[in-house]
Design a binder for these strands. Sequence first.
DNA 1: GTCTATACCGAGATAGAC
DNA 2: GTCTATCTCGGTATAGAC
Lengths: 187, 187
Amino acid sequence: MRSQSVDKRSRLIRAAVELTYLHGFAKTSLADIAKQAKVPLGNVYYYFKTKKEVGEAIIEQRLSDLEARSKEWDEAGAPRDRLRACLLGVLENKEVLAAHGCPVGPFCSELRKEGGGLGKRAGEIFGRHLAWMEAQFKALGKGNDSRGLAVHLLSSLEGVFVLAHTFRDSHLVVMETKRLNQWIQEL
Amino acid sequence: MRSQSVDKRSRLIRAAVELTYLHGFAKTSLADIAKQAKVPLGNVYYYFKTKKEVGEAIIEQRLSDLEARSKEWDEAGAPRDRLRACLLGVLENKEVLAAHGCPVGPFCSELRKEGGGLGKRAGEIFGRHLAWMEAQFKALGKGNDSRGLAVHLLSSLEGVFVLAHTFRDSHLVVMETKRLNQWIQEL
DNA sequence: GTCTATACCGAGATAGAC
DNA sequence: GTCTATCTCGGTATAGAC
């Protein structure tokens, strides 16, 4: 049945997204993913020809997640409120972020070092996020500098995720988002 | 002879630092390191009982590198000039940073996810860097907020390294360091 | 479409001659 | 101290029965 297949495939993707977030892409074996998804190892290869294809599926998943969230942020109203909604989302995830880091940053770093083209595709996730932020700054009348402002905002967030994860300290996320909120307010 | 041993050991560490920076710790095999250092694989285990010990040696190397550089920055004069010296160092490395990312951030992320205690030790590198920055902000009379300022500065840098690496775009490093320089000036 | 068994390879680590 | 040969395990991927 098709419904069965779709179900297994989505279970595999779900497991892959979770496990690679927790342990990294290289350290997550297809056997681990299969086990978590309750699919026999050999069957994985019916849905994904190679591990690289699993990686692509993870990226697609992250992209559609981001799209969904950015639509939610858009509903917050004015550009400043949208950006604040984004920061609020970060704050709500502070504990997970401190425990395991950003799901995107280390994933991109790892894939870039691996070579093989997956890294470039993964970068699309940041590309979209950056584009969304830039649009908000443009709407705030910061057309000249909108790119730089977006880079600064996303950099600050990605960086504090690295530090919070390194020290397992969610308070760093609180500190930095407060500062960024203030900064947005004063722009 | 001891001199031979020391020489081989340092060659191995040098190779380990380089290769793990380029390809990540997990993806760098002891065979790769041995080959680059021109030491037979079996002999590696005379100097390091396990790969984990190689990881520790890499961390020690990074720590002493940072110590050396922070002493150079200290010679720039007043606190603001010291911070600018640090940023200037970043700028001088922009091409390498865009090509391969930060040597510390992804390394810490990877080791944290691996578990096993190496990650915590690696975090010491950021700990020292943060402490140095904090000292500069204190000296600028920002005692209240010195921790938050240091976190913001290091986060911004680490984050832009992730973005610059992802997009292989050294210009992002230029943009962000300019902004941070300005920010320091206005504090 | 599904699953078991297995081929194959590269990794960390060890044995033991020199 | 040094180096070759090898063990062992875990990973990706495939073969082929059902």
